[in-house]
Design a protein around this nucleic acid. Sequence first.
DNA 1: TTGTTTATTGTCCCATCGGTCAATCCACCG
DNA 2: CGGTGGATTGACCGATGGGACAATAAACAA
Lengths: 195, 195
Amino acid sequence: MALRSISDIRRQELRAAAFRVLQREGVQGTTLEKVAAEAGASKGIVLHYFRSKAELFEQVMREANLVLRDRVNARLARADSPQARLIAIVEGNFEPDMFIAPVCHAWLSLCAQVPRDAALARIQRVIHARMQSNLMSGLRPLLPVAEAEAKALQISALIDGLWLRLGLAPGSMTPDEAIAIVRQTLGPSLLPPPH
Amino acid sequence: MALRSISDIRRQELRAAAFRVLQREGVQGTTLEKVAAEAGASKGIVLHYFRSKAELFEQVMREANLVLRDRVNARLARADSPQARLIAIVEGNFEPDMFIAPVCHAWLSLCAQVPRDAALARIQRVIHARMQSNLMSGLRPLLPVAEAEAKALQISALIDGLWLRLGLAPGSMTPDEAIAIVRQTLGPSLLPPPH
DNA sequence: TTGTTTATTGTCCCATCGGTCAATCCACCG
DNA sequence: CGGTGGATTGACCGATGGGACAATAAACAA
């Protein structure tokens, strides 16, 4: 890992604190004071490291996105067939330490801002584009391109919907149940052969 | 239609105005002043008819829910087979005048409040329960109960996900495309025979 | 008409919040 | 040692927004 300056570390701490507050309070409830308190600092410091509240949220969403991406990529790196890639993507999107209600709340809150914040919208587009691209890397060898694209859209919408469901009804679903539903939707021909 | 008092009419107008503002501005941006302006009245009048902003939002969500319910029920009433019931539910959830980005934004904004507002959470539970019950009325005659329940969860999560998708990426999908994806997911055995 | 209730408005209050700023502290460098 | 620049704080400001309230207008009952 590259050396990080003191200010990079501070920024990182503040992003983490902001994400924790976001889980509890949502975007509206996340004030600069609460973020500062969560990080054990003063409000001024937050604005010292982030030009504005909007920029703080943007970086929080960007980092949450990177964490998700890395988790999926870690699984993808170990996948040795198109079918295994698909499973890797699905399981990477339902890691047990991320697919929990508070995290869903934070994401949901951020998503609700997307229509009114161009920076967040950009990040959201990246997320969708990567999901589509990842899924296509597994589907393309197995299906005609038109069918693969339809399938990718279906699966990514289903994953989004399952996250939304957990956010709206905490405790209504375990990661394993969510994965089972997506596997079911992939269908037998896209699942890896039993080991 | 039953006689409505003047106050019922006012409340109705204010709910409609609030929903319009909600589409444009989201929950945070929807202030009592803006709602009043949208309705052509003063801020005081809003709090005359609704005890608080929270109660206004609660009634807005409740009414939006009723509109959705009625649209689905209208189609269900014309369905004469389990397969037709399933199609009715799906098409009722993607009516072209409701499945549009601004409406998605309003719903998304309300959903983001669900974790922090018990009244909204109650309404959300009702929505999910009705969706599940409607789907089961079509699936139960066609599948074993365990499979039917899994299928219902799959389909309702997919519908949620498609709505979310339209909210996050306006213009990325037409009602027909969304319906096609859900039909695909239902599978041939659950689709009505070609006419 | 008169009295009573309801509709409606504009004003006021107060808490909150994002953001600015000057002052201070502290670490490092010459 | 002294100074320079970033780190940190707390005070302050202006705007906003939810909500209370008193005053007024209008509808209605007696």
